[in-house]
Design a binder for these strands. Sequence first.
DNA 1: ATACCTGCAAAAGCTTTGCACAAGG
DNA 2: CCTTGTGCAAAGCTTTTGCAGGTAT
Lengths: 153, 153
Amino acid sequence: MATNTINNIEEVKEIFNRHLTEQKMRKTPERYAILEEIYSRNDHFDAEALYIHMKTKNYRVSRATVYNTLDLLVTCDLVKKHQFGDNLAKYEKSLGYRQHDHLICNDCGKIVEFCDPRVQQIKNMMGDLLNFKVTSHSLNLYGNCAGACEKTK
Amino acid sequence: MATNTINNIEEVKEIFNRHLTEQKMRKTPERYAILEEIYSRNDHFDAEALYIHMKTKNYRVSRATVYNTLDLLVTCDLVKKHQFGDNLAKYEKSLGYRQHDHLICNDCGKIVEFCDPRVQQIKNMMGDLLNFKVTSHSLNLYGNCAGACEKTK
DNA sequence: ATACCTGCAAAAGCTTTGCACAAGG
DNA sequence: CCTTGTGCAAAGCTTTTGCAGGTAT
């Protein structure tokens, strides 16, 4: 199982739990099941893939709940939402992951993550310069993975 | 007329013209009309807004042609396509504009452009490091325009 | 008990596609 | 002429919404 990440699932659930309490929202089994499913993955997935995967595991859940819960998890910073060029939102778990950005292969769709401190510098400087309070960002580099790209898109 | 930009419209048409010739594509009046319409704007617009605006000017054109032509213009680098967080493609003319990125206000939707040479440095370094040939990128900073934001969204 | 949440299906919104007709080369 | 491009409408896809029934608190 792919849950050997920096934070174990119990810790994540606890954070979610606290958020739900603070916001006076209900602790439904669906919400925890979706959280668990997301944290068992290590990829960038879309809402439909998550939905299908839960169905496959015989977990009865609706698309509406998947979308609602994804929004909720994005709000409390346990999940990050991305747009990689197409009109399809992709998600990934975010807790315990260093802030990072993405390099996307135009041919095979492969996604590689990277960190660069200059991104933070740009955010700080541009915020000051243009009088914006910058709260988040999205940086995607597009190209192709030289050589070993198999167009498995 | 808002065509007092760095490159005049004739120059742009000439570039488009050359591209169409090279690609053995037809020089239809619709294509030039759409190009002209785009270059008369200085904002970030979506396909529907462009379509509506052409209709308003009594230019008979279809959505299909608008989408086709936008794709075509993106291909030949006369137009840039963006995704600012939502699932709605936004476009802007690109010729003669320094490469730039965007700062988007979450409250009022205002878009401010900026340039930072560090973006190019990041592209170069990450391409080398991860063995990718980086051909393009998208960097958006999200936040809010301190003070004077009127939530006119 | 009573909001809130869920499931289901329909609707909405952007974009693509199919087909018949038009027109560029 | 022949093939590409266009208009129109329908279909496709992702995401949102409305409503009736369920359930956490």
